[in-house]
Design a protein around this nucleic acid. Structure first.
Lengths: 231, 231
DNA sequence: TGACCCAGAATATGATCAAATTTTTCCGTG
DNA sequence: CACGGAAAAATTTGATCATATTCTGGGTCA
């Protein structure tokens, strides 16, 4: 009954170890994180089963997970959307990230090895490259990976998860903001962070990361304030 | 084929508006939060379908949600357990709760009305009552509700969610701790918090809540340190 | 001790039922 | 005669379950 043109177990040869619901989760997560789904846009189960070529159950589970993390939002009735950020939301996120990013950067600086410094430098170069190319999607991804690497280095899994989940909340709006302002106008403090990490200046890293974060978040706030039109 | 001895829609008469996966989530969440499932204990899908008298799909979704929130943990293979807390975990939770609880208490103090003060007083009385009775389960629940009410008053949904998810992480261990120490030896700072809230001393509330939290968390750390045996 | 087999548990699909939104139809009014 | 709006039909989408399939772990036998 399941004869021919299905995709039984050939998907990625040896990637069969990863359960479907996990794969679906990862894919959907990235699509939200990097703004492929706009704030306010609806996410339907059946739409995703086609879009991601998956069954209904795995999609369902992925949606639940992302809803828990604040990346998606129940819409009273049983619709699910990518939430809009309110001004109050942004304030909360800024408040939380001030603590989180500073602390994680501080710990990361203390624990990072030269090899880690090099990896971070590569990532930052990739960010710069994406900026030059005006490659929006790649900019978002590389910028995220830079920060995510720092989270990872901090060796604080719980705090890292919280930071990650915050990123999921503002990711879609970040994309809107950059889409309007352009990648060119994105000054970041990554160079300063790298310098501090190399010299072991943990406090300095924390301060630089905090400023980097604030720049971005305030820019999001400004853009979303002006244009409440993206619905 | 759906006629006879099934449980089609008779479960709770008019509670049909709440989806099953939501109900299952709430129930399982409480069971974890109030320590009915011990750290290290396995949680099986089929076990829950019986335990909560639910279908397999809703149970699955509830487990995914709780896993996202850190209340459950994938065990490499496809087992799911209530995670053990490590010493490092506790440090992270303390760090996070220090700023979260303080900030939420501060905001709550600024926004609370006399009616809210009264509700909090009732809740604290319930805590005291549970302590006198030595009613472990009720103590845990009322203590949680006291804090949750403060989160609610703060009017900061994102931060509240984070605080809630942290509670899910240490809930099971809190139960272990109190189960060993007894409800009697649980001094709390709730009275001080209430007094500060009534007089509008926001900083004072923040400090008192922070101390209350620290007391509890350090006690958990101490107990778990001594006895690595609960597995 | 190591390989094999079996039981049980988890993953994943498709079918089926229910709810909600959208579209269509129809009637009354200006 | 056209327009607006309410009611009803139709379509779309979500919720749940029964079932088939796959994988893990443990026990047994050589």
């Amino acid at each position: 009954m399941k004869d021919g043109a299905r995709k039984v177990s050939d998907s990625t040869s040896q990637a069969a170890r990863v359960p479907a619901h996990e794969q679906v989760y990862q894919k959907l997560r990235e699509q939200i994180l990097f703004g492929e789904i706009a704030p306010g846009e609806a996410v339907t189960i059946q739409g995703l089963t086609e879009r991601l070529d998956a069954g209904m159950t795995p999609v369902r589970e992925a949606i639940r997970r992302l809803t828990s993390e604040g990346a998606l939002q129940f819409q009273g009735n049983r619709r699910v959307i990518v939430p809009h950020l309110t001004d109050a939301n942004i304030s909360e996120i800024i408040f939380a990230r001030q603590w989180l990013e500073s602390h994680l950067a501080l710990r990361a600086t203390e624990r990072a090895t030269p090899a880690d410094h090099q990896q971070l430098t590569f990532m930052d170069d990739a960010v710069d490259h994406a900026i030059q190319q005006g490659d929006l999607r790649n900019y978002l991804e590389m910028n995220y990976r830079f920060h995510a690497k720092i989270y990872d280095l901090a060796g604080a899994p719980i705090l890292s998860e919280i930071a990650d989940s915050l990123w999921l909340r503002f990711g879609p709006s970040l994309r809107v903001m950059i889409g309007r302002v352009g990648t060119q106008n994105q000054p970041d403090k990554h160079k300063a962070v790298l310098e501090c990490m190399r010299t072991g200046d943990a406090e300095g890293s924390a301060r630089a990361i905090r400023e980097d974060m604030l720049q971005g978040m305030e820019q999001i706030r400004r853009i979303l304030e002006i244009s409440g039109d993206d619905r």
